[in-house]
């Protein structure tokens, strides 16, 4: 068994090296597919980050009526935290609201003067609610609209921002779906092109497959070396894919940082380099092996 495996591997490497022109051409096409695939991963990460940043900026706030006891407000906070749609609820007391307001406008003397003239804190205590998904705000707003809260709630921001939130939710949904469809489409195109290249590479060996059969080689012995070549194609394309993408990611990183300051794509690339290589490898080796398997099977049947 081990001897047979060794012989299959030997013939695989021999085929790869002796058909070096075909091997190079196939790796180049597979490399193109890998780079497309890798770019889709990275664009996916950037896109997801952009979407999550927008999503983080969306919340709804509930302003309480003047004089609402704090324990009532905290009770509502707890009940909101119990909702499955709610990711986080922050309670902002009147004093905290004033502090934040002053911190936000430290240099604005007009605001400071106005607050002094008023004497009392004009701001309301409030709750800032973040949902897991922008689509969930509708359900949260509906919950807050319950009759039992009418005597403590003065205002729910969702009612003013409903249109914007819904539109953002829809845009994010479309963005995700478009990304998925684009990924699927490009990955399929890349796979089909690679499959055809491997088909042509093996087609040039069609006669040899017939000869091997005549000599008494089993199907596994014939197929094995082509599978090995498929693995070598995939491995080479995955490795070269990471190596040639790295400088591009390095160069594009500052540009993306300008657009999304929280995103450092170069750091992400470096910290996930083995994962990216793993995905490349899985993608390229799968194409290489599956294509070889299917094509050789066709000639073995003939």
């Amino acid at each position: 068994m081990l001897t047979t495996l060794y012989r299959i591997a030997k013939y695989g490497f021999q085929n790869f090296l002796r058909n070096y022109l075909v091997s190079i051409a196939t790796i180049l096409v597979l490399l193109l597919a890998v780079v497309v695939f890798e770019s889709l991963i990275l664009f996916g990460v950037v896109g997801e980050k952009a979407i999550s940043l927008v999503q983080d900026k969306i919340d709804i706030s509930v302003d309480f009526l003047e004089g609402t006891p704090e324990d009532e407000m905290l009770k509502l906070k707890s009940s909101l935290e119990g909702l499955q749609e709610v990711k986080a609820v922050e309670y902002v007391s009147k004093d905290e609201a004033l502090k934040r307001f002053k911190d936000k406008h430290p240099e604005d003397s007009d605001i400071s003067k106005a607050l002094e003239e008023l004497g009392d804190n004009p701001l309301r205590a409030s709750l800032n609610i973040k949902a897991y998904d922008p689509k969930d705000y509708k359900a949260v707003a509906a919950y807050l609209g319950n009759e039992s809260f009418k005597n403590i709630i003065e205002n729910i921001s969702y009612n003013q921002n409903q249109l914007v939130i819904d539109r953002l939710a829809k845009i994010m949904d479309i963005g995700r779906q478009a990304g998925f469809v684009l990924t699927l489409l490009l990955a399929t195109v890349a796979s089909v092109v690679s499959f055809n290249t491997i088909l042509l590479a093996i087609y040039s060996n069609k006669d040899e497959i017939g000869i091997m059969r005549l000599v008494g080689a089993s199907n596994a012995f014939i197929r094995g070396p082509y599978i090995v070549v498929g693995v070598i194609y995939g491995l080479s394309a995955a490795l070269i894919g990471v190596l040639i993408t790295a400088p591009f990611v390095y160069l594009i990183s500052p540009v993306i940082k300008v657009l999304i300051p929280e995103m450092n794509i170069w750091s992400y690339f470096l910290s996930h380099i083995f994962g990216i290589f793993g995905y490349n490898l899985l993608f390229a080796v799968t194409i290489g092996v599956v294509s070889s398997f299917i094509v050789v099977r066709r000639y073995l049947k003939g």
């Binding site: 002796r18 058909n19 040899e208 000869i211 091997m212 005549l214 000599v215 008494g216 089993s218 199907n219």
Partner: peptide, 19 residues
């Protein structure tokens, strides 16, 4: 394949592995 291992087959066009 098992059958053909009991045979030696020779053709006019040689049918050798060219590479």
């Amino acid at each position: 394949p098992e059958l053909r291992r009991h045979m030696g087959i020779i053709f006019q066009d040689f049918r050798l592995l060219a590479k």
